[in-house]
Design a protein around this nucleic acid. Structure first.
Length: 424
RNA sequence: GGAGGAAUGGCAGAGUGGUCGAAUGCGGCGGUCUUGAAAACCGUUGUCCGCCUACGGCGGACCGGGGGUUCGAAUCCCUCUUCCUCCGCCA
């Protein structure tokens, strides 16, 4: 969430910039400022009374020590009124600050200056294209049919075991998953990311820290008996490693990468682009996460974009990079670049990565801060993450684009992981 | 799952109702000494909120989380969480 001092000092800017996200912030921002002011006034009063009370208590202690019992008891009676007053004010203050918090978490992150106004993904700006679309035969098959032909992904068995959207990978299909995961992890660690393997279930605090809770509660699977959430992305556990942490500036940047399965309920998206691997409830993804200083976060974002681009290039997939418009930008993000690859049989662009800078928005929720050398003041860190990469749609595009009459060509960078160059 | 014990500052570890934000040691930072370094010695060392014409002063909160008792709680009570020991079960 945004910090109160930031809102206080940048009221107009916040309202103006949030219009780009199609969010009318004026009313809520003014409510926040009003509540903040009254909370502060209240606190001044409470602090005064507490100070008075502390002094009185000290005096009473001294009287008892000196054996002046009567005087002490007299003084004690006098404090009861003060005590009542403090109690009342404190509970009012608690109420106010929880109301303030309630309002604050409803305000999305302010978009970066480069983000354009727009309603939906159709307004996203294509900033770069690469690779070349293969010349497929007229009767080229979509990946779900290829999956059946080579018996490498079984959607029906997934339905039997769990339900729709939980594919079962078999044989070379399973091996292919493992190959991609290993390849991505190796490339990421070569680029300075440290590999971590986090828990797949997280608590509510973690869900809140990265912004999935409370607004996107319905997107996650919830284990009610223990109040855990299945992670929708490795971003959640990997970023929450640094919840309530104060780093030294010299520790930055922190770069982590993690492979995890991801679980998404995708409620309400039935019937829309859900064939095959296009949209599933459980999928594998390798994520990269950076913790950066305020000055360097946009440079880091650029670096992450180039890194993801190089992965896609090496898989020889046709791709495009888009800058999300205000309407398509997530609640917590300031700037996001999506990567889409072209699945040539479906003739569709499929999103395979989303690289974002959250600036201090998550860090404020996480209480993730850092200190410059020799300075006492703490600063909120900037958090960034991106998929490098999400597997299902990469697999979909590779199967479709690389189909030949002999079988499916395995990209050369994966040969050593697959132990073969053709799936047949 | 059953029975006990514990949770204090970056770490170790005192403190069981009254100047305790918290002894002491280690670490960190600054300094003296030294050609330099080490040792020794001296000083310093948390976070958050707020107020004040402020590169400083003051007030408040924080001793695992939450709640309670009390004029006053790190210290007492309740509850949750985590860790350790023993028993049971188990990949």
């Amino acid at each position: 969430m945004l910090t109160i001092p930031f809102i206080r000092e940048n009221r107009d800017l916040v309202i103006r910039q949030l219009k780009i996200k199609n969010f009318d912030a004026e009313t809520i921002i003014d409510q926040i400022l009003k509540k903040d002011l009254s909370r502060r006034n209240n606190q001044v009063r409470v602090n005064e009374l507490q100070s008075e009370m502390n002094q009185a208590s000290k005096a009473i202690g001294l009287l008892f020590k000196n054996g002046e019992k009567d005087q002490a008891n007299q003084a004690r009676e006098k404090t009861s009124e003060l005590k009542e007053e403090i109690r009342a004010l404190q509970s009012a203050m608690q109420q106010a600050s929880s109301e303030l918090n309630e309002l604050l978490i409803q305000v999305p992150n302010v978009p970066h200056a480069s983000v354009q106004q727009g309603k939906s993904e159709s307004d996203n700006e294509i900033i770069r294209k690469g690779g070349s679309v293969p010349d497929l035969e007229e009767n080229a098959l979509p990946h779900w049919e290829l999956a059946a032909r080579y018996d490498i992904i079984d959607f029906d068995l997934g339905v039997k075991l769990t339900g729709a959207g939980f594919p079962l990978y078999k044989g070379d299909g399973a091996r292919f998953q493992r190959a991609l995961i290993s390849y991505f992890l190796d490339r990421n660690t070569e680029s300075g990311y440290k590999e971590v393997l986090p828990p797949l279930l997280v608590n509510a605090d973690s869900g809140f820290g990265t912004g999935q809770l409370p607004d996107k509660e319905g997107q996650m699977y919830h284990v009610q008996s223990d109040d855990f959430y299945l992670i929708p992305t490795a971003e959640v556990p990997v970023t929450n490693i640094y919840r309530d942490v104060i780093l030294e500036e010299g520790d930055l940047p922190i770069k982590n990468t993690a492979y995890t399965p991801c679980f998404r309920r995708e409620a309400g998206s039935y019937g829309k682009d859900v064939r095959g691997l296009n949209r599933v409830h459980q999928f594998d993804k390798v994520e990269i996460v950076q913790i950066q200083s305020q000055e360097n976060s946009y440079q880091a974002l650029e670096e992450m974009v180039l890194h993801v681009e190089s992965l896609i290039n090496d898989l020889q997939l046709p791709y495009r990079i888009v800058r999300l418009c205000g309407g398509d930008l997530s609640f917590t993000s300031a700037l996001t670049f999506d990567f889409e690859v072209y699945a040539a049989a479906q003739k569709k662009w499929l999103e395979v990565s989303s690289v974002s800078n959250f600036e201090a928005y998550q860090a404020n929720r996480l209480k993730l801060r850092y200190k410059k050398p020799g300075e006492k003041k703490t600063l909120l860190a900037h958090t960034l993450n991106g998929s490098a990469l999400a597997l299902p749609r990469i697999v979909a595009a590779l199967l479709e684009n690389n189909q030949t009459s002999e079988g499916i060509r395995v990209p050369s960078v994966l040969h050593k992981y697959m132990g073969k160059d053709l799936i047949k």
